[in-house]
Amino acid sequence: MLEVKNVDAGYGSTVILQDISLHVEPGEVVTIVGANGAGKTTLLRTISGLVKPRTGAITFEGKDITKLEAHDTVDRGITLIPEGRQLFPDMTVRDNLLMGAYCRHARDYQDDTLHEVLELFPRLRERLDQHASSLSGGEQQMVAIARGMMARPKILMFDEPSLGLAPIIVSQVFEVIAQVAATGTTVLIVEQNVFHTLKAADRGYVLENGRMVLSDDADALLQNDHVRQAYLGI
């Protein structure tokens, strides 16, 4: 479904990603784990078109999307839930969610999707008319996920969904991600919370200093010595 082939990317004169390849199949939950600064966020930003690859190619459903702008990849069905929520702080929760359905293919279904999404996040129903900035961190993360779902994506990418959240909220977030995956949406998660995310995923990649160093089934990675040593501290 999504295929990244030999991609190099970076900002200005700085190269962050080197020779990255990965693939995601329909219905999978795939994770990319790695330390802070390994290039995980840059990788997702590159897939979604916010950063342009220097070399290499990205295809989605067989079509080349390497050079597409961010707003075009959304129209193709690729939605990124960015690190740190990135809500529209001075807009209501409702308006935030409606912005999620801005892209062409989601527009016409916006009311139905809103209904579905609120089924999944009943807590947000009471918050619809509040400003997004008045919500707690956990609620904001829920809005961010709900907003991502409003785009009716084929693949939903999460960038550090556990960032800055209390442990108990982190567990809730991963439950929600599991629910999203259960609806048949393909999921790609980038996380430094290695344990949680490998538990939730089918397959995983390990990114270190801008290079892919490992790729395996999630369970196998959990048992992998290198992973256990470098990320789980065992």
Binding site: L50, E69, V74, L80, F88, M91, D95, Y102
Partner: peptide, 24 residues
């Protein structure tokens, strides 16, 4: 209006707006 909301969204968070499919 949808366009008006898109304008406000772009002003509040440009990168996020692009991720919503808004042509900033």
């Amino acid at each position: 209006t949808r366009t008006g909301r898109a304008i406000r969204a772009t002003a509040q968070n440009r990168a996020a707006a692009r991720l919503m499919g808004i042509n900033d």
